[in-house]
Design a protein around this nucleic acid. Structure first.
Lengths: 110, 110
DNA sequence: ACAATACATCCAAAAAAATCGATGAATCGT
DNA sequence: ACGATTCATCGATTTTTTTGGATGTATTGT
């Protein structure tokens, strides 16, 4: 039976690791644009985003997955449609209030 | 007298662009670690960071430049030494208060 | 049942970012 | 003046990320 190896919980890298994925998810113009649109429009399906961003559907799905895996957005499936929306709690916990008008849904702050 | 004209309504991408570089700068474990150490220790020179992060000097310089270009840290040169420190205003404007203990210098908030 | 739509996933190619030894400029100590 | 130290920049290589057409599954409308 192999031993489970774990980073020391007090190591800085252990503390910082969860944030890397979140910042990576935000470190792309297309994904920032997705975040922006989801804030402006609320729940939005992929086919609408394809039109808004003028980006191939497979590319959109890829970027949405990045944001999902980082916990910054949420998906709600209704039949064939996938509706995505901002995960307000996560975004609020991560970004400053000054960014609320850009990356937080209207009314969720300020 | 002509009225000062505010820039015509810009595309979302225009608004978002400045943030891409900032999030890109934070989207790396090594650079997050640099931010963390600068917060803990205040002004720190490159040679100290080389020892702390156990990373080649050229790599450190590369990452410090990324953070500099994003405006997240500041440099102060004293003779041969380069001291880097957090740009508190920028970080506060970008990140949530909940991250203050990790990415903001102690005492600059909470 | 069939055609059309929505979307996640796959995959190979292209683009972007990171790595690290080497070089060179500036400064310091002796 | 000379050797040593600090650090930014260069450049070739490796690694990671992004791209977008193709494929497959699920669902909807007729």
């Amino acid at each position: 039976m192999e031993e489970l190896k774990v980073l020391a919980p007090q190591s800085p890298n252990y503390i910082l690791k969860p944030f890397v994925a979140k910042f990576k998810a935000l470190a792309d113009e297309k994904r920032l644009r997705i975040m922006y649109e989801l804030c402006q429009r609320g729940k939005t399906c992929v086919c609408d985003l394809v039109e808004i961003l003028e980006t191939p559907q497979s590319s959109l799905s890829y970027h949405l997955k990045m944001l999902m895996d980082a916990g910054l957005i949420r998906r709600e499936t209704q039949g064939t449609w996938s509706y995505y929306e901002i995960n307000t709690e996560e975004v609020n916990a991560l970004l400053s209030e000054q960014l609320c008008c850009i990356f937080r849904p209207p009314g969720s702050c300020c």
